[in-house]
Design a protein around this nucleic acid. Structure first.
Lengths: 152, 152
DNA sequence: TATTGTTATACTCTATAACTATA
DNA sequence: TATAGTTATAGAGTATAACAATA
C-alpha cells in the first residue's frame, strides 16, 4: 500500500517547514494559538476570551482603575478598549462609575455578577493551565514561565 | 518627593496583574507580541510580516505546493490565503502556476525576486532571533524551543 | 491648552457560504 | 458529485483623528 495522506495532520506532517520548525518566534505563535483555542473550547469555558478575563482581573485588583490606565496595562489603545468594556457592561459584569475627583474619568468596578464570573473564571484558568502544560513537569512549567518573562 | 508615575512603564509597573503574571497563556501572548513587534520594527526589517515570510519559506521548500495544502500547513482557511497570495504576487515575489496534472490547482512558486527576498529575510530572521533571545543562553534558548514544542 | 472617554473611520485577519471551473 | 480556488460578506481586533466634557 502506498502512503496516501488523507487527514490534515498527514499533509501537515509531510510538509517541509525548514527553519520555521525551531524558530522561537514561530513556536511562540503556534503555542499561543493552541493556548487560545484550548481556552475557548475547553470543558466549562467561561464564554469570555482570555483578554476579557484579563480585564476583569485588572479591574478586580486595582481599585478605581480608569480606562486610560487599563489601556496602558493591557497595551491597547483607549479607543479599542471602549467596545470591550461595552460588551462586559452589557453582560452585567462591570460598571463605569464617573469619578468624583476628576469627572473626565470613569472608575471601573466589577458588579456582584462580575465578581462571581471572575471567581469561576479563575478556577477555569487553573484547570486550563494544567491542561495546557500537561506534557510538562512542574519544574519545566516554571522554567518556561521564567524564560518567557525574559522575552516578553 | 512623592512618587509621580509619568511614563506608561511607570503606570504599568504599579498595576497589580494578580495571577496573570505567571500564567503560561498570558506570558505566551506577551512574548508573541514582543516577537512580532520586534520583527516588524527591527533594523533592516524586510517589510513582510512573519506570516508572509513563513509562506515564502513553505513555497520555497515544497515544490508544486498547492494553495489548499499551504492553507492546511499554516492553519488558515483557503479563502483567507487568497488575499495573502495576491499581495505577494503583486509585489512580484511569487507566481501561481496552473497545474498541468489537475487544472483546478495552482502550483505556487517563488519568482527570482521572491528567492532573493526570502534569502535576505532568512538572514534577518537569524538576527531577529538572536535579538529576541538576547537575554537567554544558548542552552536556555534550546530549552525554550523544546518546551514550546510540547505546547504548540 | 491638555486629558478622558467616545465616535467615526479604516485596515487587517479570520471564517462561512456560494460560485466557477474542473475532475 | 466532489474538489481547488475565488468572491461576497461578516465579525473581531486593532489604530488614528476628531469631538465633547472637563480639568
Amino acid at each position: 500500500m502506498a502512503k496516501t495522506p488523507n487527514s490534515i495532520q498527514d499533509i501537515t506532517r509531510e510538509l517541509d517547514f525548514g527553519p520555521l520548525t525551531d524558530l522561537v518566534g514561530y513556536r511562540l505563535r503556534k503555542a499561543q494559538i493552541a493556548a487560545y483555542q484550548g481556552f475557548m473550547t475547553g470543558q466549562d469555558a467561561p464564554g469570555l476570551t482570555p483578554g476579557q478575563v484579563g480585564v476583569l482581573i485588572l479591574i478586580d485588583r486595582n481599585p478605581a482603575l480608569t480606562q486610560q490606565t487599563l489601556s496602558y496595562g493591557i497595551g491597547v489603545d483607549k479607543s479599542t478598549l471602549v467596545a470591550t468594556l461595552d460588551r462586559l457592561t452589557e453582560r452585567g459584569l462591570i460598571r463605569r462609575v464617573r469619578s468624583a475627583v476628576d469627572r473626565r474619568q470613569n472608575e471601573l468596578r466589577l458588579t456582584p455578577k462580575g465578581k462571581k464570573t471572575l471567581h469561576d473564571a479563575l478556577g477555569y484558568i487553573d484547570r486550563h493551565e494544567m491542561n495546557l502544560t500537561s506534557r510538562l513537569s512542574a519544574d519545566e512549567r516554571e522554567t518556561l514561565i521564567t524564560l518567557l518573562h525574559k522575552i516578553g
